[in-house]
């Protein structure tokens, strides 16, 4: 499992994460919802150490450390065992789809090239891009790029898969193809998955737990039914009444 205890982050004087406590088991899917600027993305970025958290402890598997005293090894450990899918895909632009996926395998995990390519091809087939293996990112649609990015993350077999608004930058007609890939990954239960998303129906459907964040704090934590149907805090009630959850899920 991955456990964050008392995690805090400041951007100068702005307190973006306030004493975050979260535990996610391997195989569990957790969605983080909330308004823009509530600290959702920062939370994910702190886990992957793209931002350095200022206070608190993180434990992942059997490794645990104080983030204020994080060593290079701690950061490397977190980055090796977690992987981020970005809102803007961030595919390496001078590498083909295949090379994007093999890059981490060859450079970081030192897997022989042939083996890495076989694995990458396999994953690209799974995300439905068998015929786009040798394409450069600019020749792919947004949805295809995001599916390559998901394959790139999966290839590394991270303990924790982080998805930071994976469909927010996509044209509406491409959202479904990416969501269906994420759903398949979620069902496989191979990772602890933490998804920041504005797709409420999707979050409701795939998540084991939902976190509602507001101004850097976790205000709600529970099953999708609990959080969406009977939120305790007033701000969560307002937020959830504003997002249109389709009727199917309101029981």
């Amino acid at each position: 499992m991955i456990q964050l205890q008392g995690l805090n982050k400041w951007f100068n004087k702005h307190h973006v994460l306030k004493d975050i406590d979260v535990t996610v088991q391997f195989g569990e899917v957790v969605s983080v919802i909330g308004a823009s600027g509530s600290g959702k993305s920062t939370l994910l970025r702190c886990i992957d150490f793209l931002e350095t958290p200022d206070k608190g402890t993180i434990s992942l598997g059997d490794h645990s450390f104080d983030v204020a005293k994080a060593t290079k090894q701690d950061v490397a450990y977190m980055r090796r065992n977690t992987s981020m899918v970005f809102q803007n895909f961030n595919l390496f632009k001078y590498k083909t789809a295949l090379e994007n996926v093999t890059e981490g395998l060859i450079t970081v995990q030192k897997i022989p090239k042939a083996e890495a390519e076989a694995k990458a091809r396999d994953l690209l087939v799974k995300v439905g891009l068998a015929d786009r293996v040798d394409y450069y990112p600019n020749k792919l649609s947004g949805g295809q790029q995001q599916r390559v990015a998901i394959a790139r993350s999966l290839a590394l077999e991270p303990k924790v898969l982080l998805l930071d608004e994976p469909t927010s930058a996509l044209d509406p007609e491409m959202i479904a193809e990416v969501l269906s890939v994420i759903k398949a990954v979620a069902r496989a239960r191979n990772h602890a998955m933490i998804i920041v998303t504005h797709e409420m129906n999707f979050a409701f459907e795939i998540s084991d737990k939902v976190i509602y964040m507001d101004e850097g704090e976790i205000l709600e934590y529970g099953t999708p039914l609990d959080v969406f149907n009977s939120p305790k805090s007033e701000r969560a009630q307002q937020f959830i009444s504003r997002v249109n959850l389709s009727n199917n899920y309101v029981i």
Partner: peptide
């Protein structure tokens, strides 16, 4: 060089030197 490219490299576990050699220098 686009910051997102470097973040992606870090996210897949590349060290600073690997990112420099594989992503930043070529780009």
């Amino acid at each position: 060089v686009d910051k997102g490219q470097i973040e992606a490299a870090h996210s897949i576990g590349m060290t600073g030197w690997q990112t420099l050699r594989r992503i930043t220098i070529p780009e």
